[in-house]
Simulated scan of single mutants.
Amino acid sequence: MSPGQWLLALAAGACAALMGAAIQRGATCTVAAVHELMDQGRGTRLRSLLEASLWVAGGLLLLRALPLPAPTLPAPYAVSRWTLLGSALLGLGAFVNRACVFGAVARLGNGEWAYLATPPGFFFGCLSVDALFRVRPDPLPGGSALFAAPLALGWAWAAFVLWRVSGPWRRRGGHPRLAWTPHAATLSIGLAFLALLLLEGSWAYTDALAELARGMAMGHGTRLGLFGCLLAGAMWGGWRAGLWKARTPRAVELLRCFSGGLLMGWGSLLIPGGNDGLILLGLPMLWPYAWVAFATMCLVIAAALWAARQVRPASIA
């Protein structure tokens, strides 16, 4: 690799590590968001997830106005019964795992080693999906409705981000203290994802595992290296917050996490798209199948939580 390529790789690794730390510190998780909404009647975490999508949408608009190479984006897909089945499996897998793919990273950042079984489960789900579901999602012709918006919205987004980022300096007289609120975390996730989009193209760790399982030549080494940086960032975030406490997993916990990952792997290829890819790319691009899939996933998680409490009225988080 040339010095320039090394610099790009280091920059991409730093962005992935920042994303991991933000996921851990912001406790970003769809299961936790639905849990909060059902138990406390508050949508703080759910709004934060949607806010991450908003940051990415604004960034994509701004990139159109800048003299930079356009990032390579995946094709959208049509809404079908496979979209609904896949998102139901994705939601059920997140419930079994007790964390979505974001939440699994956050749990690993706390030292919950049982969640090391989630990525292998996801991988084997992607590996076995064709043997169970012989389906090929139909591509959706046409571009994204997002790019029909005026370019001025991209510049307005940039000004808004600068205003948000400068908030701590303005409020604390130039001596800010970083507080990893859900809003700060989602801003960091969105900006880090945009930087990775420019440096490495469309990247989500679930996509990297899916491509590896299906034998697609998409730079496995680089993408898996970014996954390692993501996990390292999450663990650093947990250590910095004083939340790191290595927990030796029991066999039943490893089985639960592997099974949850397996279900999420099946669901992600039927939709297609994992939870992270849906939130950070599908929703911002205003693709209908992504919005349908995310909403269905949330409803399935809520239904599973409700049903579990009828059988065993204990807290499931």
Rank of each mutant, 00 (worst) to 15 (best):
P168K: 10
W169Q: 13
W169H: 15
W169I: 12
G173W: 06
G173Q: 14
G173D: 07
G173L: 14
G174T: 06
H175G: 02
H175Q: 13
R177N: 08
L178D: 08
T181F: 06
T181P: 04
A184C: 06
A184R: 11
A184L: 07
T186F: 10
L187G: 01
S188M: 02
G190T: 11
G190N: 07
L191M: 13
F193A: 14
L194F: 09
A195M: 03
A195L: 11
L196K: 06
L197N: 09
L197T: 08
L198D: 07
L198P: 04
E200H: 04
E200A: 11
G201P: 06
S202I: 00
S202C: 05
S202K: 04
W203N: 06
L209V: 08
L209R: 06
L209G: 08
A210Y: 11
E211A: 14
A213F: 05
G215T: 10
M218I: 00
M218C: 01
G219T: 05
G219E: 12
H220Y: 07
T222G: 00
R223K: 15
L224S: 09
L224I: 13
G225K: 00
G225H: 06
G225F: 03
L226F: 08
L226A: 02
F227R: 01
C229H: 04
C229S: 15
L231M: 11
A234K: 02
M235F: 06
M235Q: 10
W236T: 14
G237L: 13
G237M: 06
A241Q: 15
A241L: 02
L243K: 03
W244I: 05
W244Y: 10
A246L: 08
R247G: 02
T248G: 05
T248P: 12
A251V: 15
A251K: 10
A251G: 15
E253K: 09
E253A: 14
E253P: 00
L254W: 07
L254E: 03
L255Q: 11
R256V: 07
G260H: 03
G261Y: 11
L263N: 10
M264S: 08
G265M: 07
G265T: 08
G267S: 09
G267P: 14
L269I: 08
I271L: 10
I271R: 05
P272C: 01
P272Q: 09
G273V: 12
G273Y: 04
G273P: 01
N275Q: 07
N275Y: 01
N275L: 07
D276N: 12
D276C: 08
D276L: 12
D276Q: 12
G277M: 14
I279H: 05
I279Y: 02
L280G: 04
L280H: 05
L280V: 10
L281P: 02
L283N: 01
L286Y: 05
W287F: 12
P288C: 08
Y289N: 03
Y289V: 07
Y289S: 12
A290Y: 05
A290R: 04
W291C: 11
W291M: 13
W291P: 11
V292P: 13
A293K: 04
T296R: 06
